[in-house]
């Protein structure tokens, strides 16, 4: 399952993008072409939900702790079910917070926030409101199905293919370490907020982190 990772600035502007192909034997498998063209838009579409979660007390209530959550949201219409859950949990959420008033849940890592057909989207927020977002490709034969799935006419056939299993702990670690790299970038007084991060040193390190934590090999 290839991944597409981006850091989104405070004005929805991507400041860093990278694709992590998955490794199969000696070959690395990236996203099919039509998904490559689409990925930034899929990410952008998820920002609404991320901003919603950004200001919720328990953005990932019930999400991160119960492992089953990620596996189940397989078919395409659970997309909206997810949103229903969000709005509901937000309502329940505050009440719970009010009554207990102790929040130990972390709220930087948001876990899975959205999905589009077989693709899952996870997110992480920095303290300055930078959004780290990632699209996780589908498992299985990526050559045609995932791409043809979205662009083709026959959405029905493949849409119910189950979503990707996400290893939350590994992913969280990846996000945290990228966060650290980002802070280091920001500490450079000559780097301006929301500027694209173009230095190869950053890119090199992010890719190394991806290999370490999240890139799967078959």
């Amino acid at each position: 399952m290839p991944q597409y990772f981006a850091i989104i600035g405070t004005r929805d502007n991507p400041i860093y993008e990278a694709e992590f192909p998955s490794i199969s034997g000696k070959n690395s498998i990236g996203f099919p072409r039509d998904l490559k063209e689409l990925n930034p838009f899929i990410l952008h579409a998820a920002l609404d939900i991320i901003e919603d979660l950004q200001w919720q007390m328990n953005p990932n209530s019930g999400g991160v702790t119960t492992g089953g959550y990620f596996g189940t949201g397989g078919n395409s219409n659970s997309n909206s079910n997810l949103s229903v859950n969000n709005s509901n949990s937000s309502g329940v959420g505050f009440l719970r917070n009010r009554s207990n008033n102790n929040n130990n849940m972390e709220n930087c890592y948001l876990g899975k926030v959205d999905h589009f057909y077989g693709l899952s989207i996870t997110a992480y927020l920095t303290y300055g409101g930078m959004k780290f977002v990632m699209i996780h490709g589908t498992t299985g034969d990526l050559g045609g199905s995932a791409g043809g799935n979205i662009s083709g006419d026959d959405v029905g056939g493949n849409a119910s293919k189950s979503a990707v299993q996400i290893d939350d702990n590994a992913l969280k670690l990846f996000y945290q370490e990228v966060h650290e790299l980002y802070i280091k970038t920001l500490m450079n007084p000559f780097y301006r907020l929301n500027d694209p991060i173009t230095t190869p040193a950053f890119d090199k390190r992010v890719r190394a982190l991806a290999r370490k934590h999240i890139v799967t090999s078959k």
Binding site: F41, I42, H44, A45, D48, I49, D52, Q54, W55, S83
Partner: peptide, 18 residues
């Protein structure tokens, strides 16, 4: 922020355009 889904709307419009 977060109380609308305008960006989702734009995305689906893009898909339609495609």
């Amino acid at each position: 922020k977060g109380f609308t889904r305008k960006r989702k709307a734009a995305f689906f419009r893009l898909m339609a355009a495609k």
